[in-house]
Amino acid sequence: MIPLSWYLILAALLFCIGLFGVLARKNSVAVLMSVELMLNAVNINLLAFWRYLYLTSTAYNGFVFVVVLFAVAAAETAVGLAIIISAYRSRKTVAAEDFTALQG
């Protein structure tokens, strides 16, 4: 049987890899992809907690969190990509460090 710790360590690792991508990648589409990795790490955690600690036949708390997270991920991608495409149209770049119009 797999102990809970394995899932949690996997999720933490995935989250940190995603965070590294968000902080370090130049391409803003790649930044969005890294955010997806982080959201997936959270999903693994939620389902692991549901399976190991809160498993009853009537409570679906873990499931509902995951459903909401799926919606958040979809919304985040749609809006994020719309912003990137819009910015690409006006500035001809997708590099995150070139979006400097709001820099002080």
């Binding site: 006006s90 500035r91 001809k92 770049t93 400097t100």
Partner: peptide, 12 residues
Amino acid sequence: TAVQPETNGGVS
């Protein structure tokens, strides 16, 4: 043919 970006990346 698209709108050209401002030079110098805006107010930086």
